[in-house]
């Protein structure tokens, strides 16, 4: 639902900007010793698509993210990003192809200011990563960093050390880092965790107002948030894809309700 207009915005976008697969997983498996954290996961996310990945704790959602981002190399299977096989690519190479992510537990640079965190994120995908020259006034990356800070409502905290931010502000900053550069697909790992109801409303507004060419996959336990910001849903259970469909289909599925949502939902 679009927080500003109050209308369900997401379903209307299904297929409207799909110009090919942003992410294709084929038979992806990740073993930790004898334990299969994810097994034979096959899934396609179209360009610009907004997908929620749901499942109980231990279903393998974050492991799936880690395999996509390159934090973990899958034990078997292939991962294609915008048509390119990136299965063995290191994390930074995938980022340079338009992939971004946020983390379940904020991974920020507590000793740097908000502005420096976002500036670093902008630098990471620019050509001048190794520059030994300080940015000058009018540096386009500085301007871009300021825009991102404004987009996540952190302008007043721009020069605050990240360690001194509230938890909610740190989650907002996580999103700003993910938006730096030119993202084409963002993986959000429980972005609403620990946020107040007001902050969750802000998050929904932010996600639904992202430019159409930016697709995302979101892991979220708050069903209200997940189903409002996603066009499609993948349910995971015990490391496998259990069901796929639209938010309405998933919400009304008896098996899903029994496994995950509980009888009282809806």
């Amino acid at each position: 639902m679009n927080a500003q207009t109050g209308t369900p915005a997401a379903p209307a976008r299904i297929g409207s900007v799909s110009t090919g697969a942003a992410l294709e997983l084929r038979g992806v498996q990740k073993m930790f010793g004898a334990l299969a954290a994810i097994a034979d996961v096959t899934m396609t996310v179209a360009s610009g698509e907004r997908r929620a990945v749901l499942g109980s704790n231990g279903a393998g959602k974050t492991t799936l993210f880690n395999c996509v981002t390159g934090d973990f190399l899958p034990t078997s299977g292939t991962i294609r990003l915008f048509g390119e096989d990136v299965t063995t690519f290191p994390a930074h190479e995938r980022v340079r192809r338009g992939l971004r992510r946020t983390y379940q537990i904020s991974l920020l640079f507590g000793g740097l200011t908000v502005a420096d965190n976002v500036y670093l994120a902008c630098r990471g995908v620019s050509r001048a990563r190794f520059s030994m020259l300080r940015p000058r006034q009018g540096d386009t990356l500085l301007s871009r960093a300021e825009e991102l800070i404004e987009a996540v409502n952190l302008t007043d905290a721009s020069s605050t050390m990240v360690a001194n931010l509230s938890y909610g502000q740190q989650r907002q900053l996580e999103i700003a880092l993910a938006l730096a550069g030119a993202p084409r697909l963002i993986l959000f790992d429980e972005p609403a965790a620990g946020l107040s109801p007001t902050e969750r409303g802000e998050l929904v507004r932010l996600l639904t107002n992202l430019p159409e060419h930016i697709g995302y996959v979101i892991i979220e336990h708050d069903m209200d948030v997940a189903l409002r910001v996603a066009e499609s849903v993948t349910m995971m259970h015990n490391g496998t894809v259990f069901k796929e469909g639209t938010p309405e289909e998933i919400e009304n599925d008896a098996e899903v309700q029994e496994l995950y949502l509980g009888d009282g939902h809806g």
Binding site: T69, D71, F109, L120, G124, V125, S131, R134
Partner: peptide, 29 residues
């Protein structure tokens, strides 16, 4: 002193504090 506050030095400090995050920002750690 100069380089420590230039992009190269800032990124190095970021890598020291959180290499995984820096890789996720596009830096070759």
């Amino acid at each position: 002193i100069y380089v420590s506050r230039a992009p190269f030095g800032l990124a190095l400090q970021g890598i020291r504090d959180n290499p995984r995050r820096m890789a996720a920002l596009g830096f070759n750690v």
